[in-house]
Amino acid sequence: MGMDASTDQIKAGRIDTSSTYYELYQKSVELGTWDAEKLVHKVGFEDDREVWEGLNDNEKEQWARLISYFIDGEQAVAADARRIMKTVSSPYFDRSMEKEMMASALALEEAKHTQFFDLYITNVMSDKFPQYELDSRRGGIQIPRTEACGAGEMFERQGTLQAQAAHGGDPADIARAATNYHIGVEGILARGGYFAKNRMMQEAPLKLLNKGFQFISTDEGRHITFGLELLQELIEKEREGLPDYQGVENAIWEQAIEDIGYITDTAYFITADIDDPLDVDFSELVNRGARLAGDMMFDTLDLDAGSATEFMQASADAMESAQGSDYDDVIDKYDHIYSQKMAGD
């Protein structure tokens, strides 16, 4: 039986194989090229359908709120991956080749995540998703549940920020976009979602969904490391005093503070707003999200803690407004718009 040779023993020419970006790319090739169709065939939908059918409507609603923002979020990040590929070739980065390689892997993976959720919703959860087929980039809108919560707004903001960064953005623009995408969407919103799914799986063990989440979360882990590496490069240059890079740390904080509002709203939307039937626990979700944010911003990026209080206050403001929101009403409104779009009006 043949054994794999270790890749780091193979000599390369123009590619810097000692680069972290190369390592992330290579690991994406090794770990991130799983086949969503094969996964679905291998594990099958049957067990999940049985568990799903055994859930009451409120429990299904909780899953639907979580999965809505995942499918729309994955599609949004997949769509923005093209912009990331452009952004990492910016002259503000010293080298781009390995970054571009990693960004291309990221693009494939995000597309695959969208595919997985599309397959899953269609074959297991369709009763809670009478409407989800529209492509939001082709005149459609996001799923009503996504539109109703902070996640929907966050994905729209992501498109704007990524476009600004890709089209000649300066280092602060790039930092803002990377913060929103890799720290906010992938690092807190998605990972908070995995925390929620872990809790919900205790009561409702959807086996295929769990496997899919495991692969997705592993891919996203590399994307987050990628984003943090990009941010570290920019921060280093700012700290070296290079004039073009001034304002990077500030941009990261500003964006993080904006994003934590969307994220808190989403956390409330998937838990407390519907009385948390599958016991995620809003408090523990918030605590976990805070730790994930802290690990990235203080441990990895070593940001000055000066704005931590503002960060919490932004979360507090969002929670207060979430408590006063009538999400069902908003969902109904978007249901109506969605139906009209589906009918081709």
Binding site: N287, R291, G294, D295, A308, T309, M312
Partner: peptide, 13 residues
């Protein structure tokens, strides 16, 4: 900073 302490796991709430 108490918020930083909670975020970085130095304190648990």
């Amino acid at each position: 900073d108490v918020v930083e302490a909670i975020m970085s796991g130095k304190l648990e709430l």
